[in-house]
Design a protein around this nucleic acid. Structure first.
Lengths: 249, 249
DNA sequence: CGACAGCTTGATCGATCTCAAGCACGGTGG
DNA sequence: CCACCGTGCTTGAGATCGATCAAGCTGTCG
């Protein structure tokens, strides 16, 4: 069966991801997932996208694009996790968000990306030249309506982020962060553990805290039996209600 | 002359705004300002918008919509300044942004507004039922492309906000805030003073600070001759370079 | 086995919040 | 006209949360 399916690409193992050798992941599939309103067009759209895509594998730590780069490409993440960080002149970093498989970046941007994309884990992404990509989607789909929705979602997330950073204390921030990851995983089916693909430093720079503070909050949550954490990158929520209360949404 | 012009509505006097009695401001004009790509259609679009608009005047302090309200309306601000605040259960407030004449709200939202709109000054806004408004614009204009741009801008602003809240100290936050207001006024022509229509409490809740801290930072900037402040709601930037350095963009 | 990176924990420091007081201004009523 | 009051702003003093500095712990890799 060669027709594109609308299943999400398999939930990736964020850490120690093992990509199939040789045969790259089907990028158009993740595009199609996001564009699934396209209906009957998919197969041809997929083929056309295949024709203009560049697939790029990367290792943890690799910088995929920087905030100074001219925004010539649109990226779709096929596997792995990527952070979007803004660096200040003196080196301070604010992580704006994390990209997970199926996420885009580079659509809603001006002349330049305003943040840098860095690989939190190994992974693979699909790169499209902005022009042809836009033209193609515009031609095939009711393009803007769809991406309007996408950007709206991103905006809502940014506003949640503003609330966390502006008015929540350290405990509330960490709790909110865990709930966000939990909700994300819930969207793709039941799960018992939350996987934390990122390091403490990345959580800290997302939450506007110091590494040590993040660590202390995890410890506190563990001691209070709100969560269990078999290792630093795995969390099981023992008391969802308690966690939600702590996050004080 | 009845044809719509593309001039911005007159720069409003934020505080002590005096609205012409009887004859309401021409709302479709502010819509048209934002939609000026519509070109030849404007006149008819304006007329149709006239037909579905409800104009609402409001005094300082009035709540225009709340975060619990079902998002049935799109608003366009014709005059005055409005804050968009998210309230937490215990009363903490985070101001997500301020609306100025010509700004919209309610386009990029889900089922409900996720924040409340409150009048920072007296003003006037135009209210459209979401359905007819969308239909109308969709019919007349290359609607989504335009609003995609709008939401993208909003997203960029939210991300700037995230950076301010996540990684800047009190001094940098206040400096950044003043620069934002300055840039906004610059877009509409030269000016010598920045008007601060909002109170210290609102600046504080936008910047994630306490009122007292905001006040102290103003004092510090004044003492260092970076700004002059004839009164609490007027600021003149004496040393733009210095202010930019302090904001450490 | 040693070196290193990432995480945790402890002790101290400091920026910002909180609490409290005083000031400036505008509106109101005697 | 002026005393009074309320609101918003500023300033000061002390408390607090989270940052910073420093050390130790754990697991991985060569």
């Amino acid at each position: 069966m060669t027709s594109l399916t609308f299943n999400r690409i398999p939930k990736c193992h964020f850490r120690g991801i093992s990509l199939p050798d040789g045969e790259p992941l089907q990028c158009p599939q993740c595009i199609a997932n996001k564009l699934n309103y396209c209906g009957a067009m998919d197969l041809e759209l997929g083929t056309r996208l295949q024709a203009i895509v560049t697939r790029i594998r990367f290792e943890r730590g690799r910088t995929l694009f920087t905030q100074e780069d001219s925004a010539d490409y649109v990226f779709a993440l096929a596997a792995g996790v990527v952070s979007c960080s803004h660096y200040m002149a003196d080196g301070r970093r604010q992580i704006m968000g994390f990209l997970f498989p199926g996420d885009y970046v580079g659509m809603a941007t001006g002349e330049r990306y305003s943040y840098s994309g860095e690989a939190v884990t190994a992974g693979e992404m699909c790169r499209f030249s902005r022009g042809p990509f836009n033209k193609l989607l515009m031609k095939f789909c009711d393009f803007e309506k769809h991406f309007f929705q996408e950007v709206s979602n991103e905006l809502a997330e940014a506003q949640k982020h503003v609330l966390i950073l502006g008015r929540k204390d350290a405990m509330e921030r960490v709790a909110s962060f865990l709930l966000m990851l939990d909700e994300r995983e819930n969207r793709y089916g039941a799960h018992d553990n939350i996987e934390l693909p990122m390091m403490r430093a990345e959580i800290a720079d997302y939450l506007g805290l110091a590494i040590e503070t993040v660590s202390r909050m995890f410890t506190k949550l563990r001691n209070r039996r709100i969560i269990a954490a078999p290792d630093a990158h795995l969390v099981r929520i023992l008391d969802p209600g308690g966690l939600r209360a702590i996050a004080s949404e």
